[in-house]
C-alpha cells in the first residue's frame, strides 16, 4: 500500500476530503505546458525568435513526459485521444499533439527554408500551432473547471487564471532567454509587457480568491488552506508576494529608473516562474471535496 488508493476511503470520517490524485507531477505538467505555449506565442508573433520556439517546444515535450510519468499505463497514451466529444483531457492531449506537430513543421520549414515556393507556408503551420497552443494554455483550467466534484475548481475563473498565467510565465521564460541572449531593448519591451500582464494576473487571482472566500463550504475550506492552512506559505508567500507583487515592484522601478534591467529580468523571471508553478500547485491542492452528507 504505497499510497492511498483513494482519499475518501483513507479515513472513514465524513468531512472535507482534500484531493490527492493530482499533485506535483500535474502542477509541473500544467506549468510547463502553459509556459511553453505562452513562450511559443511570444516567440512566434511578438518577436520571431528561434530559441524561444525551440525552448517552448521542449517545455511542452517535458510537460507531456511529466504527464506520461504519472500515467498508470503510459503505453496507452495514444488512447487519450479517444474521448474528444466530452473529455477536456482528450481535447487537451490532441491540442498538444497538434501543437508539437505543427510547431515542428513550421519551424523546420522556416529554419531550413524548405518551402521557398510557398513563403507563407511556415506561417500557416505556426498559426495552427499557435491556435493549439491557445487551447493547451486553456485546457488544464477547463479540465478542472469541468469537475463538479470539486467546487473550487468548478469556476470559470480557473481557466481564465490558467490562461493569464500561461501568458505570464511564457513571458517570464522569455525574460530568462533574453537575459542570456537578448538585447537590452528587447528586454525592456518584454518587461514592459510584464507590467501589463502582472496586474492582469493579480486581478484574476484576487477575483478568484474573493469568490472562494464567499463560496460554499468546501470552497471556503480551500480558501482556508490557501490563506491560513497548509498551503498558505506557498500561496501567500510564493504565488502572491514573490510571484506577483515583488516582480511588479522590481520591474516597475527598473523601467522607471532604467537601471538594473538585466538583473531585474533575471530575478523577476525566476520569481514569476516559481509563482506560476506554485499557482498551479496551490489550485490543485486547494481542491476540496465537500462532505458526502
Amino acid at each position: 500500500m504505497s499510497r492511498p488508493a483513494n482519499v475518501f476511503s483513507e479515513d472513514y470520517r465524513i468531512g472535507f476530503k482534500e484531493q490527492q490524485v493530482w499533485s506535483l507531477p500535474h502542477a509541473l505538467e500544467f506549468f510547463l505546458l502553459g509556459t511553453g505555449a505562452g513562450l511559443y506565442l511570444f516567440s512566434t508573433w511578438f518577436r520571431p525568435y528561434f530559441t524561444g520556439q525551440l525552448v517552448s517546444m521542449l517545455a511542452v515535450v517535458a510537460a507531456g513526459m511529466s504527464l506520461m510519468a504519472d500515467l498508470g499505463r503510459p503505453e496507452r497514451l495514444w488512447r487519450t485521444f479517444s474521448n474528444l466529444g466530452v473529455s477536456w483531457i482528450s481535447r487537451g492531449a490532441l491540442s498538444v499533439f497538434f501543437f508539437l506537430a505543427a510547431a515542428t513543421v513550421g519551424m523546420a520549414l522556416r529554419q531550413f527554408h524548405l518551402s521557398p515556393s510557398l513563403p507563407r507556408l511556415p506561417a500557416i503551420f505556426e498559426a495552427v500551432a499557435s491556435l493549439s497552443a491557445l487551447v493547451a494554455m486553456l485546457y488544464p483550467g477547463l479540465v478542472l473547471s469541468s469537475y463538479a466534484s470539486i467546487p473550487s475548481w468548478n469556476s470559470p475563473m480557473v481557466p481564465l487564471l490558467f490562461l493569464v498565467y500561461s501568458w505570464l510565465t511564457g513571458l517570464a521564460a522569455e525574460w530568462l532567454l533574453f537575459f542570456f541572449s537578448g538585447t537590452r531593448d528587447e528586454l525592456g519591451v518584454s518587461l514592459g509587457i510584464g507590467l501589463f500582464l502582472l496586474p492582469c494576473a493579480l486581478i484574476c487571482l484576487l477575483t478568484h480568491l474573493g469568490a472562494m472566500a464567499r463560496g460554499g463550504l468546501a470552497v471556503r475550506e480551500g480558501f482556508r488552506l490557501l490563506t491560513r492552512g497548509s498551503l498558505c506559505g506557498w500561496f501567500l508567500g510564493v504565488v502572491l508576494t514573490a510571484g506577483l507583487l515583488l516582480p511588479l515592484l522590481l520591474i516597475g522601478s527598473a523601467i522607471i529608473t532604467g537601471e538594473f534591467i538585466q538583473l531585474t529580468a533575471l530575478v523577476s523571471s525566476i520569481l514569476v516562474l516559481a509563482g506560476g508553478f506554485f499557482l498551479r500547485y496551490c489550485i490543485l491542492k486547494a481542491g476540496v471535496y465537500p462532505p458526502l452528507f
Binding site: 483513494n6 475518501f8 484531493q19 490524485v21 493530482w22 499505463r73 479517444s82 473529455s87
Partner: peptide, 25 residues
Amino acid sequence: DKCCGSKACIAACPYGALHFYEKKS
C-alpha cells in the same frame, strides 16, 4: 483494458468511488 491510468476519473467523481490500483501487493 482501455484505461491509461490518468486518474482523471478519480478526481472527477464526487463520491470517491474510483480507486487507483498501482501495483501488485
